[in-house]
Amino acid sequence: MTGGHRRILVVEDDPETAGQIVESLKTSGYQVDLATSGHEALSRGGAGDYAVITIDRMLPDIDGIAVMRQLRDDGIAAPVLIVSALGEVDDRVRGLRAGGDDYLVKPFSFVELLARVEALGRRSDTIVKETILRVGDLALDLMSRTASRRGKDIVLFPREFQLLEYLVRNEGRVVSRAMLLQHVWDLHFDPSTNIIDVYVGRVRRKVDDQQAYPLIHTVRGVGYSLRAPG
């Protein structure tokens, strides 16, 4: 996520929420365009080259999903994050099936929104096909599905490896609990307890215990971030 490709189109009809989204995205260094209706979204979306488009499901004129379909039909390939007050699985599935890339339920935390936009933006960058991922002294071998630090193997269950791989692929970025559930477990549900924290805690012990420096960091109120110091 470097270079000039940091333009985001936000489609949101509520002025205050729109203002808050735009502000938080701008603070994070994005260029943001705002569309407050479906028609405006279609004209802006068709004209500009956006890294990510966020669309509210309920717009005053055209349904958000219809807007997204139209954009897709017009050949706009930018990843779409659907934002909606309709949080139920059916709506979520419908949104994703209609061509959405991710789904966020209102109300959301802006950190979560940022994390999602970051992750989506990365998808539109070129994805490098590597077989070994490295962060600091951690190495993940994607072929043999093994992890090691300073050449010393870390024993991980398959799911633990997947979790670590997801964190490594999002190195330096914040990853929310919901994103982990979605991308590591392929689950769209809201666990009432802190199972994700417990799970990450176990991986963290295996990865970070008795090492020179920790790699997995807790981001209060949101989730986790994997990064090497310096």
Partner: peptide, 9 residues
């Protein structure tokens, strides 16, 4: 959810 979203924001 609209006012709650603003509030949370």
């Amino acid at each position: 959810r609209t006012p709650l979203t603003r509030m949370r924001g």
